[in-house]
């Protein structure tokens, strides 16, 4: 059970308080109707799934309830950093 730093609570808490929420920085297009099927597919389904550094989202579901972003190494599972939603990609 990994430990996760919630950037809102500023505390490191056990994984059981959190819900993983997929890859980060995939913003919903402002006007989806202008997207081609291929662009929409990319938004919906295509994921980086990297072996290594991964920008991903978590929610402190059983804490403050906030969604936030993180950089984690998917090989070691170690977090590099976590940061608030809306902050630029790290």
């Amino acid at each position: 059970m990994i430990l996760i730093h919630c950037p809102y609570c500023d505390e490191k808490r056990p994984e059981l308080e959190f819900t993983y929420a997929g890859e980060a920085h995939i913003a919903r297009p402002a006007d989806p109707s202008t997207l081609s099927d291929e662009e929409w597919e990319r938004y919906l389904f295509i994921r980086a799934n990297p072996k290594g550094r991964h920008n991903e989202r978590w929610r402190h579901s059983f804490g403050c309830g906030r969604f936030f972003n993180a950089v984690r190494d998917t090989v070691t599972d170690k977090f590099e950093t976590t940061y608030k939603a809306g902050e630029p990609r790290k």
Binding site: M1, Y20, E23, K51, V75
Partner: peptide
């Protein structure tokens, strides 16, 4: 486990 990983290492819970 709930998160993407290549570690072949799972959690106790």
């Amino acid at each position: 486990d709930q998160y993407v990983s290549y570690s072949q290492r799972g959690a106790l819970h």
